[in-house]
Amino acid sequence: MVAGLLLPPLVAAGLWYGVGDLTLQAQQSFRISWVAVGVLAATAIVLAFLAGSRLSPVASLLGGLAFTAVGVMPFVELFTRVRLLPVDLLPGVFRNGFTTSAYSGMLVVVGVTLLVASLFPSRWRGSARDLAEPVEYESTWGSASPQSPYLPPHHNPEDATRPMYRE
């Protein structure tokens, strides 16, 4: 839950700074800002951790809702012709990155990605596992053998939608 409150603003700040500094340096001096590239790489790592980890799905849900809401605002501005985005509140590099990522639709892409990542049923399951009795197989020799550790357990409804067996 705390990650859902802390990581999305860090992703937004990294995205806005990285995009803003990269475009500003490219437009002014025709060079690549390696600091901005590093910030964007770190932001991508944090975004991947937020979307694909076993954190609470509320973390990616909250971030996805926020990014999608802010990302849809430029399209609403086009139809209503009313200024909704607070672009004057941000300092120079952040303002440039915010407007570039908002008006290009990048914030909608990040928001929908986080929303879809939070919808998988396996992320909403608890970590408690049912302690089912191990299944015993009859061997060709006539004696019962315990279940193989390499095969998925049978009769476990928690693993019904997972693509592979996990311990």
Rank of each mutant, 00 (worst) to 15 (best):
L85D: 00
S104L: 13
A102G: 05
V93E: 11
V87Q: 09
P74G: 04
L84D: 02
P74L: 05
P86L: 11
N96H: 13
N96C: 11
Y103L: 10
L84W: 08
N96A: 14
E77M: 01
F79Q: 12
F79E: 10
L85V: 07
M73H: 03
G71M: 02
G92M: 10
R83E: 15
A102D: 03
T80V: 10
G92V: 10
V70D: 01
F98E: 00
V72I: 11
Y103Q: 09
M106V: 15
L85E: 06
F98N: 02
V87L: 12
V82F: 12
V72K: 00
L90E: 01
V70Q: 02
S101V: 05
V93A: 13
F98Y: 08
L78R: 15
V93Q: 11
T80K: 05
R95L: 08
M73N: 05
G97D: 06
S101I: 06
R81Y: 12
V82R: 14
L78I: 10
V93D: 09
M106F: 15
G92S: 15
A102S: 13
V72H: 00
R81I: 10
L78V: 12
L78N: 12
F79H: 11
E77G: 01
P86E: 10
T100P: 01
F75P: 04
S101N: 08
T100D: 11
L89Y: 10
N96Y: 09
F94W: 09
F94Y: 11
G71I: 02
F79K: 11
R83P: 07
L90W: 07
S104G: 14
Y103M: 07
P86D: 08
V93P: 07
D88Y: 15
N96Q: 14
V70F: 09
T100M: 12
N96K: 14
D88V: 15
G97K: 06
T80C: 06
L84K: 08
L90R: 02
G92E: 15
L78C: 05
G71L: 01
L90T: 01
Y103V: 07
G71P: 02
P91L: 04
R81N: 14
R81T: 14
V87D: 09
F79W: 13
L85R: 06
P91C: 06
P91V: 05
T80D: 07
F94I: 12
S101K: 03
R81P: 03
A102P: 02
T99Q: 11
Y103C: 04
E77I: 01
E77L: 01
Y103A: 07
G105I: 08
V72D: 01
M73R: 09
A102K: 00
L89C: 03
T99L: 11
L90P: 00
T80A: 12
T100G: 04
T100N: 12
G97F: 05
G71T: 03
G71E: 02
P74A: 04
L85W: 01
V93N: 10
L78W: 13
L78P: 00
P86W: 08
V93W: 08
P74W: 02
P91I: 06
R83A: 10
L85S: 04
P74T: 05
R83I: 09
G105R: 09
M106C: 12
F94K: 00
L89P: 00
